[in-house]
C-alpha cells in the first residue's frame, strides 16, 4: 500500500467512524436525513464567511459553516416546537431555505468572487495526502488526517460520556422529559456534534460522502444488531470497511474515491438486506410474498 493510499483510507475510516457513531443515533431517532439537511444548510454560512474574509482560508469558512449549521438546528426546532410543524417538514423547509439563500448569494456575487458550488460542496478525499502539515520533531503528516483523528476521538468520547442520555432520548423522549431530564439541552449538544462532524468532514471528504457515511453504515448496523453497543461498533467497522474497499474499488475502476466509498457502503447495505430476507424466507417460507 502506498503512503497516499494509506492516508486516504485512514482519513476516510476516521471520518466514517465519527459519522457512524453519531449517525447511529440519527437513525435510531428517525432523523437520518438531518446530516443531509445540515450539509446543505451550511452553504450560506460558508458564502458569508468567504465574502467577509475575502479568501478561502478554511478556519473562517468553518466558523461560518458551523454557525449556519447550528442556525439550521434552531430553525428546525423552532418550526417543530413553536409552529408545531412535523419534524420532517421542519427539516425539509429549514435546509432548502438556507441552501437557497446560499445559492442566491453565490449567484449574486459570481464574477466578483472565486467561489462556486462545486468547490464549496465537494471537498475531495483524493487530495488528502497533498495537504501536509509539519509536526515539529515528529516529521509531517496530512492535515486532514489529523483533523479526522481529532474528530473521531471527540465523537467517541462524546458518545461514551453521553451514552445513557442518548439511549434514553432516542428510545423515548417523552419519558425522558417525564423524568425531568433536560431533553432540549441534550438535543442541542447532540445536534452541535452532528453539525461539527458534518462541517469538518465536509471539508475533508466532501458533502456526498459525509451524508452517506452518516446514514448508510449506521442503518446497516441497525438491521443486524439486537443491542446498542454492538450496533455502534458494527457501524464503525462497516464505515471503515467502506473506506478501505471503496478506495480500491475506485482505483480498479479508475473512478472517484468518494464515489467508490459510497457505492461500497451501499453494496454492504444491499447484501445485508438480501441476506436477512433470505434467512427470514428460510425460517418462515410463507412470510415472503
Amino acid at each position: 500500500m502506498s503512503m497516499e493510499a494509506f492516508y486516504i483510507i485512514l482519513t476516510g475510516a476516521l471520518v466514517a467512524g465519527s459519522a457512524a457513531l453519531l449517525g447511529s443515533f440519527l437513525v435510531l431517532r428517525k432523523m437520518a436525513m438531518l446530516g443531509d439537511a445540515i450539509s446543505h444548510a451550511v452553504l450560506p454560512g460558508i458564502v458569508i464567511a468567504f465574502l467577509i474574509s475575502g479568501h478561502r482560508e478554511s478556519l473562517s469558512l468553518l466558523i461560518g459553516a458551523a454557525a449556519s449549521g447550528l442556525l439550521a438546528t434552531f430553525l428546525i426546532e423552532l418550526l417543530h416546537r413553536k409552529a408545531r410543524l412535523q419534524e420532517d417538514a421542519s427539516i425539509g423547509i429549514s435546509f432548502t431555505w438556507l441552501f437557497a439563500i446560499g445559492v442566491l448569494l453565490i449567484s449574486a456575487y459570481t464574477g466578483q468572487v472565486d467561489l462556486d458550488q462545486e468547490c464549496v460542496l465537494y471537498g475531495e478525499i483524493a487530495y488528502v495526502p497533498l495537504d501536509q502539515i509539519s509536526l515539529g520533531s515528529l516529521g509531517s503528516g496530512p492535515r486532514p488526517t489529523l483533523i479526522a483523528g481529532g474528530l473521531f476521538v471527540l465523537s467517541l468520547s462524546y458518545v461514551i460520556i453521553s451514552f445513557k442520555g442518548l439511549k434514553l432520548l432516542s428510545f423515548n423522549e417523552d419519558y425522558a422529559k417525564s423524568l425531568g431530564v433536560r431533553t432540549q439541552l441534550w438535543h442541542f449538544s447532540f445536534m452541535a456534534m452532528v453539525s461539527l462532524v458534518t462541517v469538518l468532514a465536509f471539508e475533508i471528504v466532501g458533502a456526498i460522502l459525509i451524508v452517506a457515511l452518516l446514514v448508510v453504515p449506521a442503518a446497516t448496523a441497525y438491521l443486524l444488531s439486537r443491542s446498542l453497543i454492538p450496533m455502534l461498533v458494527l457501524a464503525v467497522v462497516l464505515g471503515a470497511l467502506a473506506s478501505f474497499g471503496g478506495y480500491y474499488l475506485a482505483v480498479a475502476l479508475n473512478g472517484s474515491i468518494a464515489g467508490g466509498m459510497v457505492s461500497l457502503a451501499g453494496a454492504l447495505m444491499l447484501i445485508t438486506v438480501l441476506v436477512l430476507r433470505f434467512q427470514k424466507a428460510k425460517a418462515n417460507p410463507k412470510a415472503l410474498k
Binding site: K164, G165, L168, F171, L179, V181, S227, L228
Partner: peptide, 14 residues
C-alpha cells in the same frame, strides 16, 4: 435496559 431507564435521573445520566 428499558426497565433500568426507570432509575435514570437528570443527575445520574452520566
Amino acid at each position: 435496559e428499558v426497565v433500568e431507564m426507570g432509575r435514570f435521573r437528570s443527575r445520574n445520566l452520566m
